[in-house]
Design a protein around this nucleic acid. Structure first.
Lengths: 205, 205, 205, 205
DNA sequence: AATGAATGAGGTTTCATTCAT
DNA sequence: TATGAATGAAACCTCATTCAT
């Protein structure tokens, strides 16, 4: 036999699996990763302990399923669109606001991912990959600004992007996971101002 | 006989306790917090399992002892002194360099603290306190620069300090714990430039 | 609704049952008795787990069905016929050869029967019955030889038959199940010679 | 940590380990290998379940310990010595009697070994090694008889030894494990006569 | 007849903590 | 103080069997 973890073949099975993922999400948020036990997920889902193993091999596997859902939600934020045709500062502001908002919405689980990443190599790598992708995107936009003569050309675009992204994500973590609780708009404003100045962007009208 | 956790009275006791802390540090670094077991700490120290409880009530307690040691080391860095009488940028640079160097020296344990902070409320609070103290110090120095008309007065000093410190600490974490590995001098240079620009400090020299 | 285990009524049912027995045989040979699980038999047969219970109540029952098939095969060996009208030694030789050949053909399952017999009383009894029948047949032929003054009359025919049959079957087991691997003809020759001498049969031509 | 299974360091520990082995022996004899559960061994020994794991990693390990004890007992049988200076038949008789007696004494556990050997490769190999050693010893003595012109030189000594030993051991198994129950003396007599005749040894006085 | 999801009792194993010596 | 054996509550995971569809 070796392993199982089947994909459900019937609607009923699909429903049960979904119920389990939803239940797991709640328990993880409530208890944190180490204190979450298989039996409790099953109980929360209203199924027998054994049924958990019909769909997942272990806690990691269902955690990954939960995080997939979360990522989905973070990728499709209800965008407060950057005003088309606006300048780079406005775009940075829009990006920062979008990031902080979606982070706030999923604060518990973002904290959880942070937690698990410190414990489990598999998830550490996952987070690292996402982070690199994110930084590269920002690096590209910084490089473009440099080419347009708008941003400080004395900066390495990738390093600068990493550092500034780190700043934003860490502030988000502090506020929404650790509970520092400054108002969103203040954060957006400060971070955007710091970011723009750090790049030495010219003031926008 | 509710509790114990004696302070050692004899020299022999003191030696044993020290041995345990040193052993714990090694095991924590090797295994991470959750995978470190009391029995293994005792074995590493070459004492019986039961002896652990002569000095500590649980894993948290010895972890705190280890972190105290580390903090000691981080507070007394072999300073690359900021050139006396130099300008603010040079001071920021010196501070960043000092921070990154001491972080690098204790990378494993800083990662550990991060890890434990996500798991245990007690340590989360501890880290938060340290963080606030650190940010306040930086906030003070930003406020002073503002008063001197050197730094952007449009920034809230405390928020700005928090954000910029977050940037530096997160970059340190990425590099030395997750293993991104950019050269120290490049990091110092980039972070300092970003920090100075973010505050809109005038160019030095 | 205490029990089930229907005899299939439709051709489709008969086909499914046969598929299950064939699948079980393969799984038993591959995994051994204790490591064979109902679910795997069903999977190997390409039917749902539940369908197993339409035809069998448990693992023992399907194992019995498999062993029936095997017995069938062992009873109809492609006989290397004993030369008609030949002497007793030639007949013993033919019997030994036939036994070893069919044992070799079904080595995996003979080992399996051995295995299960050590675990399950039901099968132990089954094997014992077969063994007694076999020994009695041999006892009869020894008694006949004694009456003809050809075999050692100092031997109890049943005991002698048991012991000599034990010798042959154990050698077969050693070779084909445990993998000792002496050539068939050498085995036949040695066993026959020992058997004949043990009975003090006169040399044949 | 990885593993444990310590050798006891105190007399108390040694006592407990011995108690566990003795208890395991009783439970194995009573229940057979697959039906023996760790918890029951511990209960029979009057210790907590967890204590089992202080000394053994799993069921196999304690079973090996039990079998070591048994082997010890079988190697030091209370010998019914072969009459010094007697002929080969008397020696064969003495050997057969000794073998059957010690087999009878440890019948349950010999059956157990047979059982486990069919299930577990480790023990199968162990039994095979013992068997080969035993057969080689017998082969040597047959070869010697051949050199003296006393035994049938048409036989391969190793094959003959294997086959005749198989006969004896299988008869022992039948009688004492499966419960065929012929009287010891009858068995000794018959087996010895068959063995001697099979080798065509000359009648002894 | 067939399906495959659901069950849950039953076993194994771990490890923080206690305690007699 | 030091020892290290003993404890036992948890947690994990398996798999034969049932059952609604």
């Amino acid at each position: 036999m070796e392993r199982q973890a089947l994909e459900p073949r019937s609607p009923r099975g699909r429903a049960t699996k979904a119920t389990l993922v939803a239940a797991a999400r709640r328990v993880f948020e409530r208890e944190g990763f180490p204190a979450t036990h298989i039996a409790e997920i099953a109980a929360e889902a209203g199924v027998a302990t054994g049924s958990f193993y019909t769909y997942f091999n272990d806690k990691n596997e269902i955690f990954a399923a939960v995080m997939d859902e979360v990522q989905e939600e973070m990728l499709h934020p209800v965008l407060s669109e950057p005003p088309a045709g606006s300048g780079p500062v406005a775009m940075i502001e829009a990006a920062n606001r979008a990031y902080l908002e979606s982070y706030r919405r999923n604060a518990r689980l973002m904290g959880l991912l942070e937690q698990v990443a410190t414990i489990d190599d598999e998830f550490r790598e996952l987070r690292r990959q996402r982070w690199i992708a994110f930084a590269k995107r920002n690096a590209g936009s910084i490089a473009r600004l440099q080419e347009q003569g708008l941003a400080d050309t004395g900066l390495d675009p990738y390093l600068a992007a990493t550092a500034l992204s780190a700043m934003v994500s860490r502030v988000a973590y502090s506020n929404y996971v650790l509970g520092e609780e400054a108002p969103l708009e203040t954060l957006v404003e400060t971070l955007t101002r710091l970011w723009a100045s750090a790049l030495r962007l010219p003031d926008e009208g």
